[in-house]
Amino acid sequence: MNTRVALFLSVVLHPLLMPTYLFGLLFLFVPELLGINTLSLSAQGSLLLLLFMNTFLAPALVIFYFYKLGYIRSLHLDNLADRRLPYITTVIIYTFATYLFGWQFEPISDLAPGISIVLGSITFSMAVVALISLRWKISAHATGMGGCLGAIACLFLRYGDTTLFYPLILGILITGWLMSARLHLNAHTPAQVGAGLALGVVVSTVAIFTFF
């Protein structure tokens, strides 16, 4: 794989962008499963923007602030020590976002409880990644992609909605490309990438089949 392509995939498929991609896909293909099919397209767009602000913009700005203050040496978080503070802070932000969407943002919390379930599973995955990263450099990219892939696959299997078939196939292909990219860049070992993928898939699978 070309290094530029690998870098491009790592940036475009950044872990903080995974929730926006996942919710965007679910909003587009299966809005009825999340309970947002009664909302207008503009309202769905505003909801997706709000999710983007909470799951990408807020933690990204905090991480950039840490970088400018010198608490972390690189925005790529290549060093294990650099990952700890951003990961812990991101988990706190995601926990707060899950609380807002699950209990405070009415009528969304009543109409679409599935949003907080998916967001909660993402938050739990990130918490486990943050905990593991105290000792070992597990792949957050693979965890995020595994979570998306697991959620799509489980919704497809549980509800039999055929509209998710092609997104599932595309997700499998993208997951393979991303894992190859992380290995090509020597960002992780195969074990770290595999563990991240397994973590994401397992957590999303348990969340969907238990709470959805």
Rank of each mutant, 00 (worst) to 15 (best):
T3H: 08
R4Q: 14
R4N: 15
A6M: 03
L7C: 05
S10V: 06
V11D: 09
L13A: 10
P15S: 02
P15E: 01
L16E: 01
P19C: 02
T20P: 08
Y21N: 00
L22E: 14
L22A: 13
L25E: 13
L28F: 15
V30H: 11
P31F: 12
Q44T: 01
L47N: 14
L50G: 11
L50F: 06
L51I: 15
F52N: 04
F52D: 04
N54D: 07
L57V: 15
A58R: 06
A58V: 14
A60V: 06
L61T: 05
V62T: 06
I63C: 00
F64T: 14
Y65C: 12
F66N: 04
F66E: 03
I72T: 09
H76C: 02
H76I: 06
D78E: 13
L80T: 10
A81W: 11
A81N: 12
R84E: 05
P86T: 11
I88D: 00
I88G: 00
V91T: 11
I92G: 01
F96G: 01
Y99E: 04
G102A: 02
G102E: 01
F105G: 03
P107H: 08
S109K: 02
D110H: 14
G114V: 05
S116Q: 06
V118C: 10
S125I: 08
M126K: 05
A127Y: 03
V128K: 07
V128M: 10
A130W: 08
A130F: 08
A130E: 08
R135I: 09
R135A: 11
A140V: 09
H141P: 00
T143D: 05
T143R: 12
G146Q: 02
G146T: 07
G147E: 12
G147R: 05
G147D: 08
G147Y: 15
C148H: 04
L149R: 03
G150T: 03
G150P: 08
A153T: 15
L155W: 10
F156S: 07
R158P: 01
T162H: 12
L164N: 08
L164F: 11
L170V: 15
L170H: 02
L170I: 13
G171R: 11
I172E: 04
G176Y: 00
S180E: 08
S180C: 13
S180R: 13
S180H: 10
A181N: 02
H184M: 00
L185A: 01
A187W: 05
A191V: 06
A191E: 02
Q192M: 13
G194N: 06
G194L: 07
A195D: 11
L197V: 06
L197K: 13
A198Q: 10
G200T: 04
G200D: 08
T205I: 08
T205Y: 14
V206Q: 11
V206D: 04
I208P: 02
F209G: 00
T210I: 07
F212K: 10
